[in-house]
Design a binder for these strands. Structure first.
Lengths: 339, 339
DNA sequence: GAGTGTTTTGCAATCGTATGCAAGGGGCAG
DNA sequence: CTGCCCCTTGCATACGATTGCAAAACACTC
C-alpha cells in the first residue's frame, strides 16, 4: 500500500500512537519495544520514510556536503570523487556537486548557492577560495576542507600530498638516472600544488648540484603542456628528462614526444609525471610518476570534515600525505633502484 | 554585518515590513518598488539568503536532481557528469550524486535515500532499475530519466545514442575496409547499449554477407576485454578486425595487441571503439570510434527531465541520438571514405 | 469627495519533523 | 500497600519559508 507519500502523522494514526512516538522511533531515541514494533509495522505498510528536508530544517543538519570541482578532465578527480562519495555515503552523508566555471569570479555565487542548501560542510577540489568567501563560511560556521590544494593565510583545513617532498623525490630519481639536462613543465603556478612540486624539484636538483635547464608553466592543461614540449625540444640543447607537474599533462608530453617529434622515451628523453592516475599504468603510456595516495587523501578529508562538523571549535588542520615514486617505462631507471 | 544566519523574519524587522513581504520579494511575487528596495537593503546588510531547505519543505520542490552513477572509470561519465551539472546548474537545479555499488541489490536502498531528500527527479547513468523501484518512483510521482541505457517494459524515459544504427555503421565500415575475419568484444550483455550495439553490428555484417568470426562479452571492463583479446588472437584464425563495445575496453584491447602481443594496428588488426571519449583522440591511442554526442545527449536528458517535472502527466519519452563514425588511425580506412 | 477597481500588505495557517516539558505507567524496595 | 524513581508517551511548540485571504492603501473616474 505505497501511496503518494506518507508522513509521520499518517504512521502515527495507523499505529495508534502519537506523532512524536514515530519521530522517536526513526531518530533512534528511546521507546518501548512494543511501540517500536507497532510503528515499524505501520511505517512498512505505508512505505513511510522520514522526510530528510523537514528533518534538516528542524535540526539544522542536512547531512549534505557540498563539493566544488573545477574540472573532471583530469582523471585524478573522478577517481577521488568516486571514493569520496562512497566514503561519505557510508557515514550517512551525501554530496551535492557543483562544477566551478573557469572564471573564478563566479565561484562566490556558487558558494552562496551551496550555503542556501544548509550544507553541513564544503569540500573543494583544486579550487581556490577568495578570502571574502572564507570569511562567510567561517561566520556561518560551515567547515571547509580543501582537497588537493592548500591556501595560506586562510584558516582552512586542507589535505594534499607532500608536494615539496614529492618534487624532491623526482629530482633525486632523475639525477640518479644520470640525466644532465633536466627540464620542468610545471603545474599552474597559481596553485599550491604546482608551486610546491616545482619548489621541491628545484631544491632537489640544487642539492645534487644539477642545474634546472628550463621551467615552463603548463597550466595543468594538455595544450599548454604540448606547446611547452615543442618549445623545450626546439632548443639547441633539448632536455634529456622532463618532470611534468601532473599525469594529465604528462600524457600530452608523451604524445608530442613520441608521435609528433619522433623521440624515443625513455631512450632520448625520460618523462616523469605526478598523480599516478589509472591511465598511467596502461601500456600505451606506462608512465613513471609520483603517486598521490588517493584513498588515504580521501580518508583524511572525510575525517577532517566530520571532525569539524562534530566539533566546530576544532582548529583547522593541514594534512600532507606522502606517496611513493612508481617506476615504470617512461624514465630511465637508475642502477640499483628497484621498485 | 554578516552574523550567524539571518532569517526572513530578521530581515523583515530590520526593513520594517512583514515577514511575508520578505518572502514575496525573494520569490519574485509582486511587491512595490519601495518595499523591494527596503527589503533588499536590509537583506544585504544582514547577508540574508533564503533557506533552500525550508523553501523545499513548504513548496515540495527541492530543485535537486538525484544522479545515480555506477562507475566513473570510463571517461564517458565524468565528461557527461560535467556537462549535466553545468546544464542543470544553469536552470537552477543541483545534483545530489550517488555512486551505485556493483552489487545491484543495494540500489534499492540508494534510491530510497534519494527519495528521502525529496528530489525533483532522478537521472540514472548506466544503471538499471528494478521494476519494484520503478513503481515506487511512479507512485511518488518522481520522474526518472535513464541516461545511456534504456529498459524495456518500464515506462521510463531514456536517452541513448542510436546504438543499433551505430553498430551497423561500424560493420559497414569494417566490411568496406576489406576485413575478412571480424570479431566483436561486446559491451555487457546485461545492458541495452551492449546488446543493441552487438545487434546492429551483426545485422550490418549479415547484410553484407560477412560472417561474424566470434563474439565475447567484455562486460565493459578492462580486464575482461584484455582477456577476450588474448583469447581471440590465440585462435588458429585470429581476427583481422575487432569492434569493441566501448572505448574504455578498446584501450585495453589496443594495449594488449600492441604491447603484449606485438601486433601492428591497423596493419595486422583494425580496432574500432564506441563513445569517442577525449582519450580516443590522443596520439597514443588514436582510436577510430563511433561518437556518442554527449552534449546532445545531455541536452536531451535535461529537456526530458525538466519537461516531466513541469508536467508530470507527460508520457515517458525515449530519445535516440545518432553519431558519426570518427575515423582515426586504429583501423584501415576504406578507399574513397573520407572524414 | 465618493465610488470602484487594482495592488500591496499583513495575518495566520501550513509543510513534516524534532524536542522540552509534564503527565502517565511500571518496577522495586521497604 | 505505599513511596520513589525512572522510563515512556503525548502535547504543544518551533524550525524558516510560502500562500490564501481579507483588510488597507492607492489610483482613477465621475
Amino acid at each position: 500500500m505505497v501511496t503518494a507519500k506518507a508522513t509521520s502523522l499518517d504512521v502515527a494514526r495507523l499505529a495508534g500512537v502519537s506523532q512524536s512516538a514515530v519521530s522517536r522511533v526513526f531518530s533512534g531515541a528511546s521507546a518501548s519495544e512494543k511501540t517500536i514494533a507497532k510503528v515499524r509495522a505501520a511505517a512498512d505498510r505505508l512505505g513511510y520514510r522520514p522526510n530528510a528536508m523537514a528533518r534538516a530544517m528542524k535540526s539544522g543538519e542536512s547531512r549534505i556536503i557540498g563539493l566544488l570541482v573545477a574540472y573532471l578532465e583530469n582523471h585524478f578527480y573522478p577517481v577521488a570523487l568516486e571514493k569520496l562519495s562512497n566514503e561519505l555515503q557510508a557515514r550517512g552523508y551525501h554530496i551535492l556537486i557543483f562544477m566551478v566555471p573557469n572564471n573564478a569570479e563566479d565561484i562566490d555565487g556558487i558558494v552562496e548557492e551551496l550555503m542556501d542548501y544548509q550544507v553541513d560542510g564544503i569540500i573543494t577540489a583544486s579550487v581556490s577560495m577568495s578570502s571574502n568567501l572564507t570569511d562567510r563560511c567561517a561566520a556561518s560556521g560551515i567547515p571547509v576542507v580543501m582537497f588537493n590544494r592548500a591556501q595560506d593565510g586562510t584558516g582552512l583545513s586542507s589535505v594534499t600530498s607532500a608536494n615539496v617532498e614529492g618534487g624532491r623525490k623526482v629530482a633525486e630519481f632523475l639525477v640518479a638516472g644520470g640525466h644532465q639536462r633536466i627540464a620542468h613543465i610545471a603545474g599552474w603556478e597559481g596553485s599550491s600544488t604546482g608551486r610546491d612540486r616545482a619548489l621541491g624539484f628545484r631544491l632537489g636538483l640544487a642539492d645534487a648540484g644539477v642545474p634546472l635547464l628550463a621551467e615552463i608553466d603548463g597550466m595543468y592543461a594538455r595544450e599548454h603542456a604540448a606547446e611547452a614540449t615543442r618549445t623545450l625540444m626546439a632548443r639547441p640543447d633539448p632536455p634529456d628528462a622532463i618532470f611534468v607537474g601532473n599525469d594529465h599533462m604528462a600524457f600530452a608530453v608523451l604524445d608530442v614526444l613520441r608521435h609528433e617529434l619522433g623521440y624515443k622515451v625513455p631512450g632520448d628523453v625520460s618523462v616523469v609525471g605526478y598523480d599516478d592516475v589509472p591511465l598511467a599504468a596502461w601500456a600505451a603510456y606506462d608512465l613513471t610518476t609520483l603517486r598521490q595516495p588517493v584513498k588515504r587523501m580521501v580518508d583524511a578529508t572525510v575525517e577532517t570534515m566530520l571532525g569539524q562538523i562534530e566539533d566546530p571549535a576544532r582548529p583547522a588542520q593541514k594534512t600532507e600525505i606522502s606517496g611513493p615514486l612508481i617506476m615504470r617505462g617512461s624514465a630511465r631507471i637508475p642502477k640499483g633502484w628497484t621498485q
